[in-house]
Design a protein around this nucleic acid. Structure first.
Lengths: 347, 347
DNA sequence: ACCTCTTATGTCAGCGCTAACATCACCAGT
DNA sequence: ACTGGTGATGTTAGCGCTGACATAAGAGGT
């Protein structure tokens, strides 16, 4: 024992550490740590000298070590059904940018609507002890629910607005979007209004929109004409088929509300082929305000969901929960955003 | 000193740790650690019992601690100009999904083409000692170059293919896209071909496409007619203007290659207003294969850049560099992907 | 001069995990 | 029995940083 075995091999990869900077300046490591995390607690003079040493040495703080020591990190995890696609991209963008502005990083994963993939992403994210977690409101697996319930970091659910659920909610009501569309069509004088949705796979949110639309018409003493084109054809084809079929009816509609812009685009094309004037012979409206909506001929009236706003609002609520930005306490738990009516030529 | 000061307050937040699991099973912490990282080195029986204890206790490994100890992490950072938008979204998607399949997480930031924002993102990412870093090929700040040069983790540059640059490259040549478009138009018999680009801000890659197109025409004894609509109007408007102006010329072109699909869409609409038949009176071609390209009337022939492929390939090269997946050594440094010709009605 | 209060900086111990090394049990070969 | 090899498991010492606490140095009041 008086013979100390040869010192273990250092594993460090020669990386520059806080201590290197501290030694260079002639202060303790903690002072340098404070330079980064609480600069106001370091005297002006030291701040100056430390700043110089940091850039001279090219020191990059090891956030992993910092997070371990402080049990906090500046990472926020987000699980979203998919990254590309017209729907969620700008939510991610808004979220990421708002976070970045406050020095937080985004850890991102896509679930493709699979509860299992979502759970594994949530589990992995939790391992990073993130500052907060954002999931897309949707059916969660039991495991996910449990993980989210047990953690004590802020959890935000986005996109669907479900006031009965526990965590912070940021979303909108598809029902409202239906109401908004119906009001617009009524205002323009249309009376025989049809709703077209793809009969294929369960787009439940489309049903909410239809209900909102139907209720509004009912209040005006009208009935919504609901139509679902035959098979699981692509949305574009389905829209075309719907337009053709509806226009052959004896009492054909004077306006069609499509469940989304893809369907509406198909409808528009079919109308062109048939030589119909839009909106003269029949008005057309969509939902989503996809990028192409304004490029169609005629340009498509539609409802724009608050995609970007959801991302930004979610980020704000997260930052407020963390105390990074001020808020009139407490953090607003329910955040119901509004869709936006985009009036173009097709109505 | 015989009087040990009262033990410091534990900071631990009652979270379940490796040790808790180990104690429960009656083994050492290291064995549990191996259970997660090298399961093959743990006996069948212990594996069983540890697995049970883990799920009974609801243990979630602390990846932060693991990363600090091993100086490795399963995070990969990606900095990209923007997240939404038609261009990069599917690159991110392909990258993220491929990584996720191997247990790696994506840390994402957008730079909006700003070298400063890029540098700050790279710096922050490096603090997480990520397994690898992906940046979008573009002008980097000096600081970024330095950071990337000094790190010893794999660095991948995507989108532009620049063989002269140091790190792993995954991208395509815009010049090739121009060649591809020109060949297609020649094949279809068009001879008076114009190239339309937005005179506004420097889209340098469009110039490369134009050059590729021009060179191909020259080889066929033809000259490319280059046209830039007046002012910094929106791409859509610019396309419209270009179409109107070009069609008033005496020897008007029989085909127009637009610098991107947005311009082309504007051109298509203008043609409709003018009562021109596309492609009969004039063929139209774009670049990008944005989502709306197939919804236009006529549907738009265009060139599809390998967005998804870039993301996936980048992820594969990263995983190979890390030794996660096998490769015929060494990792392929230059990866030149191909664009795809999408022939539709407009040509 | 003395005490208190505030501000700037330092000491020490650990955050939860894993690399390196050590140990132990067991088997085969001589 | 003795040696050496193999595979499973344990011991130790950090990884680089920050929290709690301690201390020093000055400011201000009496």
């Amino acid at each position: 024992m008086s013979d100390p075995s040869p010192p273990r091999k250092r594993r460090t990869a020669g990386r520059i550490t806080l201590n290197d900077v501290a030694r260079q300046v002639g202060v303790s490591a903690l002072t340098v740590s404070r330079f980064f995390n609480h600069p106001e607690r370091v005297s002006e003079e030291l701040r100056q000298r430390i700043g110089e040493a940091v850039s001279a040495l090219g020191y990059v703080p090891n956030l992993v070590a910092g997070s371990l020591a402080s049990a906090r990190s500046r990472i926020v995890g987000m699980v979203i059904p998919n990254i590309s696609g017209p729907i969620f991209a700008s939510t991610i963008q808004g979220f990421s940018d708002t976070l970045a502005r406050h020095g937080y990083q985004l850890l991102l994963a896509s679930s493709y609507f699979s509860p299992e993939q979502e759970e594994s992403a949530v589990r992995a994210f939790l391992g990073w002890s993130p500052a907060a977690l954002v999931v897309t409101s949707h059916f969660h697996s039991e495991g996910t629910e449990k993980l989210l319930a047990e953690t004590d970091i802020p959890v935000v659910e986005i996109w669907d607005y479900q006031p009965e659920r526990a965590p912070i909610q940021v979303g909108f009501l598809h029902y409202d979007a239906g109401v908004m569309a119906a009001r617009h069509l009524l205002e323009r004088g249309y009376r025989r209004i049809a709703f077209v949705q793809n009969s294929a796979a369960g787009d439940f949110s489309a049903l909410d929109r239809r209900d909102g639309c139907a209720a509004t018409l009912r209040d005006a003493g009208l009935e919504l004409w609901s139509f679902a084109p035959s098979a699981g054809s692509a949305p574009f084809e389905a829209g075309r088929e719907a337009m053709e079929r509806l226009m052959q009816e004896t009492h054909r509609p004077d306006a069609i509300l499509f469940a989304n812009d893809n369907l509406a685009a198909g409808g528009l094309l079919a109308a062109q082929h048939m030589g119909l004037r839009i909106p003269g012979d029949c008005a057309v409206m969509g939902f989503g305000d996809y990028a192409f909506a304004e490029m169609l001929l005629p340009s498509l009236s539609t409802i724009r969901p608050p995609s970007l706003g959801i991302g930004e609002t979610a980020a704000l609520r997260v930052l407020e929960s963390l105390g990074v930005i001020a808020t009139e306490v407490p953090v607003q738990r329910l955040n119901r955003l509004e869709c936006q009516l985009v009036e173009r030529e097709s109505t």
